[in-house]
């Protein structure tokens, strides 16, 4: 499992694929491959990212390698052999089409074992509400890059309240103009300044970690 983790850290997609296949063939449990191999590797990468010891393109390379391993484990998902983390509904709010940061958060959350439902960009409040209900999500994660679209995050939180969902989910926000103060002001539960910190925050909010 250590070599899988290391290959994730090094961002070696082909090697991860090979090693995961081998592990599956050797009847190593999918749970173990996921937590002790893939996610263990991404945890190291996340830790380095938090301390700015790696560069973003390198993180993405690792995330890509991790994803390749995950894809092989997917068939085992249906059999219930893999226990993934809580569901996160993720999106860039209405009026905002900037999604690079949001995608990064998605990759890092996936890398940490969360089930990410990525709604995409320019997502109105009602779509967040609907997805939260349908997916039985525990976390709503929103992003905005523009100061003009920031208020849409507040609107979404209000919509969750109206739908009676606000108490059932944790809300985390992020994006260049967003600050911890702003997050508190609009009634969000957390703020992540970058993708690594966002993962930490989500883990903390739902008390789940693989």
């Amino acid at each position: 499992m250590k070599t899988i983790a290391n290959s994730v850290i090094e961002g070696e997609k082909e090697k991860v694929r090979e090693l995961v296949q081998q592990a599956i063939a050797n009847r190593v449990s999918a749970d173990k491959i996921l937590s002790e191999g893939l996610i263990a590797g991404m945890n190291v990468v996340g830790g380095k990212m938090r301390k700015h010891e790696v560069f973003l393109p390198e993180v993405l390379l690792s995330a890509g390698a991790m994803q390749a391993g995950m894809d092989l484990l997917k068939p085992l998902l249906a059999t219930g052999e893999v226990s993934l983390g809580p569901k996160v509904v993720l999106g860039t709010v209405k009026g905002d089409i900037h999604d690079i940061g949001k995608n990064l958060v998605g990759m890092m959350l996936t890398g940490a074992g969360f089930q990410v439902v990525d709604l995409g960009k320019d997502i109105p409040a009602e779509r967040f509400v609907q997805a939260t209900k349908e997916e039985e999500a525990q976390i709503v994660a929103m992003s905005a890059l523009l100061t003009t679209t920031m208020p849409e995050m507040r609107n979404t939180i209000e919509a969750l309240k109206v739908a009676g969902l606000r108490e059932k989910v944790k809300v985390i926000v992020g994006g260049a103009p967003v600050s911890p103060e702003y997050a508190a002001q609009i009634g969000a539960d957390g703020y992540g300044r970058d993708a690594a910190v966002a993962v930490d925050k989500v883990r903390e909010l739902v008390g789940w970690q693989l």
Binding site: F55, L56, P57, I100, N103, P180, R193
Partner: peptide, 28 residues
């Protein structure tokens, strides 16, 4: 987006100077 493109990975280190001392952190 170019962030995940191989070309970025191949070039960013040579193009970008890596500040060691100057602040590049967000305020929080």
């Amino acid at each position: 987006e170019f962030l995940t493109h191989k070309h970025t990975l191949e070039h960013f280190k040579l193009e970008n100077w890596d500040a060691k001392l100057g602040n590049r952190m967000a305020r929080d």
